[in-house]
Amino acid sequence: MTLSTTPELTEETRRSLLNTMVLIRTYEEAIRREYYADKMPAFDIGAGLVPGEMHLSAGQEPVAAGICAHLTADDALTATHRPHHVAIAKGVALRPMTAEIFGREDGFGHGRGGHMHLFDPSNHFSCSGIIAEGLPPALGQAFAFKRQGNNRVAVAVTGEGAANQGAFHESLNLSALWKLPVIFVVEDNDWGISVPRSESTSVTSNAVRAAAYGMPGVRVENNSVEAVYAAGGEAVARARSGGGPTLIEVHTLRLWGHFEGDAEGYRPELKSVPDHDPIPRYRDELLQAGWLSTEQFQAMQDRAVEQVEDAIQFAKASPAPNPSEHLNYVFSEGVNS
């Protein structure tokens, strides 16, 4: 087996990358638990404390951890229908995020948005449930940063399925044309719901598409957090120094269904999927190299559980939105048509 570690990183950075991944996984497992808790015995998508569609990111933690390690709260990030991992890695606060996922008053959107519509302006974080439609707004954030004369950057995260949408191609061209400080991150998890990338995409790597728009494109294989970290570092540095956009595609892994409740009958390799879980793999690499102790790992997990369960308790204790306020927030001035 080839190590997915790269020589230049400090032990601390490595542990920090793992720590982020552990926090994300702990979070997704807890949301999954809560999602199913009151949908038994018969699954009803609209039932329970956490209703609606639920797209979890287990397996894709390396992308979030590796890219967001280079960002600060001042940088912008737009995410997709599968937003939790990047939100957490970006530093979005777990309490209001979780309360929003539970549809509560203390959520970011006072329960109006839900899991696909998390907006944390203090972190310049947002997401959208419409495929590829998070890309154009990231261009605008980058445009504003550039005009404001600071070196902040915008990251647009999207799936490999989204790379066949018009908005993707329009955004690549415009960002390169105007040299905007944008980093496009394509999470290639091999699937767009039930459609394998081989049946949706005419090229084997979306990185090659970058060339058509005059920007650098890289593809990271093996779902390696350190390789993502390296590619992300280069792209963010380029954007910050006025070098314009970069496209990074990461070959990652969708460990679970497209959404919860997805029986995945279309997915032949389902049984072997957990063998490719990036978290135990990276943990073992660090343990073997002596960069991580079992005690340190245990502490990471304990701390993650503590943070996540705190957020879930917070969400459950938060009140439901008041139905009499159902017309609020359509406009900033409190008017309705």
Binding site: G103, R104, G111, R112, A320, P321, P323, E325, H326, V330
Partner: peptide
């Protein structure tokens, strides 16, 4: 549906 986007929270959605 009054002229408001469909809210996520069940209490609000069932109101509209």
């Amino acid at each position: 549906v009054p002229d408001v986007p469909i809210p996520y929270a069940r209490e609000l959605e069932s109101t509209v």
